[in-house]
Nucleic acid binder design. Sequence first.
DNA 1: CCTGCCTGTGAAGAATCCTTCACCTTTTCC
DNA 2: GGAAAAGGTGAAGGATTCTTCACAGGCAGG
Lengths: 218, 218
Amino acid sequence: MAYKILVVDDDRELRETMSEILVDAGFVIATASSGEEALTVLKGQNFDVVLLDMIMPGLGGQEILPLLKRQAPRARVIMITAFATVENAVAAMRRGADDYLTKPFKVDELLTAVRRSLEEARLLDCGFQIEMDSTFSCLSNTIRRDILKLIDREQRLRFMDIARHLGIEDHTKMNFHLKLLRNADLVGQDENKYYILTPQGERIMACLSKLTKDNPPQ
Amino acid sequence: MAYKILVVDDDRELRETMSEILVDAGFVIATASSGEEALTVLKGQNFDVVLLDMIMPGLGGQEILPLLKRQAPRARVIMITAFATVENAVAAMRRGADDYLTKPFKVDELLTAVRRSLEEARLLDCGFQIEMDSTFSCLSNTIRRDILKLIDREQRLRFMDIARHLGIEDHTKMNFHLKLLRNADLVGQDENKYYILTPQGERIMACLSKLTKDNPPQ
DNA sequence: CCTGCCTGTGAAGAATCCTTCACCTTTTCC
DNA sequence: GGAAAAGGTGAAGGATTCTTCACAGGCAGG
């Protein structure tokens, strides 16, 4: 399963050079000579990485970056420019680029950046093959979300601590919800039976904290 | 409700200058003279923005950035350095900094960066005051997730299109789930009764697409 | 007008989820 | 050792959620 990379550059020669390097390295390549063409190509297929020139006639890299991210949110984007300033680089990253390469670059730099992006994508995705049904049905219950929030804040808690914190006097009820959380692999227990978040649980909470604001800045 | 900013710098003079500027601008400031101290301060309270010097004795900005993000995922981090190269800037952004400022900076640059970060945080948070129960209980059901995915892909669909796409022969069943999705404000209908995603629905799907990979790169 | 299809409602029953109760084992502490 | 608290199980019943069925208005085309 070779990784697919889209090379977007108006300079035909550079496009072909990059393609050659990447093909030699075992990647599957498609090219586009403009931002508009890139968006069309992206409609048809999924890419793992997009190499995007900043400066192109018509829509430049800066302009299509947000469109591209919307079209293919899972693709990693590496911006390429000859015009490297700190401000430009920061601006590109702020807009959602994942990495930034300055022309001229060495073959190794290109390959390193691509491989690193792929590696990061793998880390992001992977281990994250969630059992959606159990995960979301866990999250659909207020008590369970409160338990998660509490453990997330306190790091490690034991059974009765959770019950008291949340004012749940019936411990069998707690147990019922804790069991569901354990089955969904969102919480686990350490060697001393303290309840803790699993890695999955932590990721979910990180994601959740972006969707809510229950501690608004006072 | 003034915004709270944490200034982390080992240079006392600069720390005080920045504090003064920011206090004058109406922010509430705390300071820390090292990475370690910053983490301790962060334990006690929530900050909206952290200004973080890259180069400090002991733990430098680079090292504490991930710890800081873990400790306070909602805080926006602006890195500060005298040693500005494109590589450094890109590296800092890749590690999770939200912006990057080079010393020496003008008063305006500092204030602009801070205000922009706050603005972005507001955009991220806000409009996103989800009704969690209904949202998650919607997402906990496979059929409803499939409906969302389908609408997300096709943009606009009418009732029977959805039913046929998903192979649901009983339309009243579809209707039941659609009603829940409408109540949770995840899908809506346009003027021609086509079903579409609401802004909320789109945000949720964007978030979801990061958590799953149902179109793995072939 | 009538027929067929699209879209929708309300209600009854099936399936699932949540709570509660009775009961049990393990740990902790006096 | 013994009492109290912690931590856990299984089963019964109530509360929700999901499916199914019967029914109906709106709208196209013959």
